[in-house]
Design a protein around this nucleic acid. Structure first.
Lengths: 150, 150
DNA sequence: GAGGAATTAATTGCATGCAATTTAATCGCC
DNA sequence: GGCGATTAAATTGCATGCAATTAATTCCTC
């Protein structure tokens, strides 16, 4: 590749991923509006539906987000009545996140979102799965470079 | 896939892309710091190094960004002396973006960033290229769903 | 050629993200 | 037990992103 083409936008892996992430987020917007959640709030709820009673630290590790992003976001979800935040009795530095009944029930309303999105996107499940696996591999690769601070 | 696993974070293509984009951006941070650019500013300069004398509209289409994001960003790059913003004489609605000498020269300092990043990421050029192509395909697919508003 | 429709930037308001710092609590080591 | 190091959240400051609205200009149609 010559010196010019290395800097071409279309040759940048980074740009493709960056733009793709934003476009996908926009795709979710109308569906999530029905739930009253933003995209980041939705992803946070996904993590908590899998496992709650976790600390902010653990949740952040799962979502690749730090407390600077999570603290205000969790306070908002708490204000919406979807979860509670309470200090760990064993270690008062930690805050435990627990879903409320309402937060748990929201899962039922969210259950058909992936299906609806796939249809909308015109992706076969196999295509999507193969693609997801590749990005996940990349994600892990990239994350390990970051200095393993997590 | 059962009702539980469809909502698992690890099965979400969206989440993989979303997290990957942010991790990649972090990877760029130390390199871009040397140039004095943020990631979005860097991507904008990439587009302009390929072609300047473009309107905000055209640039936004290229970058998948709207004027709400671009206007303040371009004003900042203008304040840094990298480009100029001027109304199109033929159509006063449009604003033409043009690189300054300093903006053009910055390209020389940026030229080795892709190379350095690849090394850091431990990706072979072939791997990266195959991967980039897939994401680009996905990006186009997703973008066409959005209602072709661009 | 006048007036409503369409187009382009800019603005406003809100929700992230993240680096850096601060605060509070716990750990480790003597 | 006591104190410096470490850890977990919270806070602060800055830079995006985007939806919705506004302002200015041009287009289009009668």
């Amino acid at each position: 590749m010559n010196t010019d083409s290395v800097l071409k936008l279309d040759n940048q892996l980074c740009f493709a991923v960056y733009a793709c992430a934003r476009e996908i987020t926009k795709l979710y917007h109308p569906l999530l509006k029905e739930l009253g959640l933003t995209y980041t709030q939705y992803v946070t709820m996904l993590a908590l539906w899998e496992q709650d009673q976790v600390t902010v630290k653990q949740l952040g590790h799962r979502l690749y987000l730090d407390s600077g992003t999570l603290t205000p976001l969790l306070k908002k979800l708490e204000a919406m009545g979807l979860l509670t935040r309470s200090r760990d009795k064993q270690d008062e530095r930690s805050v435990i996140i627990q879903l409320t009944e309402q937060g748990i029930r929201l899962k039922d309303k969210a259950i058909d979102i992936p299906e609806r999105l796939f249809c909308q996107a015109g992706l076969s499940p196999e295509e999507a799965e193969a693609f997801r696996k590749q990005i996940t591999d990349m994600l892990e690769k990239v994350q390990h470079i970051q200095g393993d601070n997590n």
